[in-house]
Write a protein that binds this DNA or RNA. Structure first.
Lengths: 158, 158
DNA sequence: ATACTTGCAAAAGCTTTGCAACCTT
DNA sequence: AAGGTTGCAAAGCTTTTGCAAGTAT
């Protein structure tokens, strides 16, 4: 796993490669994603400190769509309805451990073997340019405690 | 992989176990999910033939939330914004092969080994009641053809 | 000068809830 | 009668888009 600076640099280089202007807004978004390795929601992005004051939500939105189409970032799917985004740098492994109660996300590296297996199987079905996304859902230690105490805490619903 | 009938029977039994009334609406939803092993979107569910005429969207929605809270179904996350649902019967393996262009979804069994590995890793981090969800994204053969022909087809954006 | 970006504000599109009527037990 | 369900309609949200002004090449 490279440093945030490396990841940011990679992103800028990639932008140039695909001839995408690096505007202040885009720099801010890319930097935010480079710093946080974990997926960030649209909401989290527009609320993040340096971005909040300097960019309109619409701009961030359009930036994300642009970056996604250029495959500089990846939009990942989580059951919470908002979209999440991660930088798509070569070292990115989208394998996460997610709490189904509080929604916290952390990395969970299961290794490259899974990656390779997936690649191979997908290729045998004629799929190209594949990438893996893997999530393990469960109850995090904190939420288990909260549940035992019968806390009224709820993420969503019931 | 059990038959649709088995999966449906499992769901009904589970409902009784958690003391959830089996109403016509719920039967229809569960049946729909039992028949289609692949994840179904809320939209697809309310459009499905037997459901469309007999249930209001609000009812389907509430049914899904109820079933989800009871863990009879599972809400899975895909980058397309709408939620998808699958029956959570014991034999369910949430491993999919998804086209990033047309969004088609099919199963892609990587086997139980991955499942076990994930379980173990998650447990070592203190997570309980875990389950795996895995997606492989790529371009399906049809979309590759379309792209080579420079077809104007687009799923969403640009 | 031309083409791309941005902010503001408004439009869309789903999802979620309130409420009154309806079943079930 | 009490409690759980459903449909209809309305409220809420987040995501998308239109447009005119602003910026970079």
């Amino acid at each position: 796993m490279k440093s945030a600076a490396d990841r940011f640099a990679w992103a800028l280089t990639y932008c140039q490669k695909v001839r995408l202007r690096v505007t202040p807004a885009r720099e801010l978004v890319l930097n935010q994603l480079a710093v946080h390795c974990n997926p960030l929601s649209f909401e989290a992005l527009i609320a993040a400190e340096p971005l909040r004051d300097r960019c309109d939500a619409a701009t961030v939105y359009r930036t994300l769509m642009l970056l996604k189409d250029a495959e500089i970032i990846r939009q990942i799917g989580l059951p919470q309805k908002t979209s999440y985004f991660v930088l798509n740098s070569p070292d990115t492994i989208c394998q996460y451990l997610i709490c189904r109660r509080c929604g916290s996300i952390s990395e969970l590296a299961l290794g490259r073997a899974v990656q390779r297996l997936a690649q191979t199987k997908a290729a045998s079905r004629g799929f190209s340019a594949t990438y893996l996304e893997l999530e393990v859902y469960g109850f995090c230690p904190e939420c288990q405690k909260r549940m035992n105490l019968g806390s009224p805490f709820r993420n969503r619903h019931s």
